Amino acid sequence: MPLPPRKIIHVDMDAFYASVEQRDDPSLRGKPVVVAWRGARSVVCAASYEARTFGVRSAMPAVRAERLCPQAIFVPPDFSRYKAVSRQVREIFARHTDLIEPLSLDEAYLDVTATHTGLPSATATAEAIRAAIREETQLTASAGVAPNKFLAKIASDWRKPDGLFVIRPHQVEAFLSPLPVGRLPGVGKVMEARLTELNIATVGDLRGHALQELEQHFGRWGRRLHELSLGVDDHPVQPDRPTLQVSAEDTFEHDLTLQELAPHIHRLAEKAWAAHQREAEGEHGRVARTVVLKLKTSDFQTLTRSFTPPSRPGSAAELAEIACALRDRVERPTTSRYRLVGVGLAGFVDLDSFIAQADLFSAISYP
């Protein structure tokens, strides 16, 4: 007998960091706020909806954001405050279910197939969560309700900001059919272009191609595309997963050579370092020792290179320097081009044990 469909909620706080700043400083309300340090290598952590009307987006270089919106008010990020609000929101989630999978400070998946509250539906649960967030934090959140994680994430973006959208099991295929294939997870601009060459523009078009044909063109990824086109995603909500790696990556509109990747590596290193610092300052306090460089070639081969230095990276600049050096270990022609680069940190260990180990070695005297 088949199991009943899961009931998954994806909750996404609206313009989270910027909204916290506007909440705590009334003079910022209604104004274009950009949460970022100023500087040539800084990136935007968040932008208020007023700033987004000018085209400012998260992960954009701060200098570009300033060009797009000269009247923007730049506010340096304060992660201690954002973490405090995130804990409040997590406590609200926990009233309803123990199956919570945080993706970042401002979003999470919840499996509400069974709940603590006994509310009559996943929709009612999502409404209760959003109402509690508004009342207790004075912030808004958008939510998507669906039978699986990837659909719930699409749904949460459907009526942003401060919206709720529900995809019921019998609505899945009809909902997906007209969507551009770029809305599917993992389909970036280059993959979208390759699908266009096969006359695949929408999810419905994708569904019309046989699994064997998609596997012939895209290998194992073809099977995943086929599953997504049908709305199939069996990945469960995984609560309290230990962090194995933090990373940031970017797919380029035009493929680049190794030497052209340096500014992108520096930009992504800042994002990865910010995520690492949140992990280090978190409840369990874990730090990483290994630097990882990820590349995807123009013909879709994925390459990774890693290095564990004698002492762990101490800054975003040091992380970027090591990641740039890892390019020398890519044994491909200098003319090779790459469609994606990622920078990450792995090899997480408990901060207390790391400090204790460092103190132990520093106390040892050698002849």
Rank of each mutant, 00 (worst) to 15 (best):
M1V: 12
P2M: 14
P4T: 08
R6N: 13
K7V: 13
K7I: 09
D12P: 01
M13E: 03
D14I: 10
A15R: 07
A18C: 07
E21T: 07
D24M: 02
D25K: 01
P26I: 09
L28G: 11
R29F: 07
K31A: 14
G39I: 09
S42V: 06
V43R: 06
Y49F: 11
E50S: 07
E50T: 08
A51I: 03
V56R: 03
V63D: 14
L68Y: 06
P70L: 13
V75T: 13
D78Y: 09
S80A: 15
R81Y: 01
V85A: 04
Q88A: 12
R90I: 01
R90K: 11
I92C: 12
I92Q: 08
F93Q: 02
A94R: 14
H96I: 04
D98T: 09
I100W: 02
P102N: 03
Y109G: 02
V112C: 08
P120E: 14
I129V: 15
I129E: 01
A131D: 04
E136Q: 15
T140W: 13
G144Q: 04
N148R: 09
K149M: 13
A152E: 10
A152F: 00
K153E: 03
S156H: 02
F165S: 04
V166W: 02
E173W: 00
L179E: 04
L179K: 04
V181E: 01
V181A: 11
R183W: 09
V187M: 09
K189S: 11
T202M: 07
L206K: 02
L211A: 14
E215D: 09
E215M: 14
H217G: 00
G219P: 08
R220H: 04
G222M: 08
D240R: 10
T243S: 11
E249L: 06
I265P: 08
L268G: 05
E270A: 12
A272F: 06
A272C: 03
A274K: 09
A274W: 02
R278I: 08
E283F: 00
R286P: 03
L295T: 01
K296E: 15
S298P: 01
D299P: 01
Q301E: 15
T308R: 10
S311E: 15
P313G: 11
S315V: 00
E318G: 12
L319A: 10
E321V: 02
L326M: 10
R332A: 15
S336A: 15
R337Q: 12
L340R: 06
V341F: 04
V341T: 06
G344S: 06
L345T: 08
A346G: 07
G347V: 06
F354A: 15
A358F: 00
A358I: 00
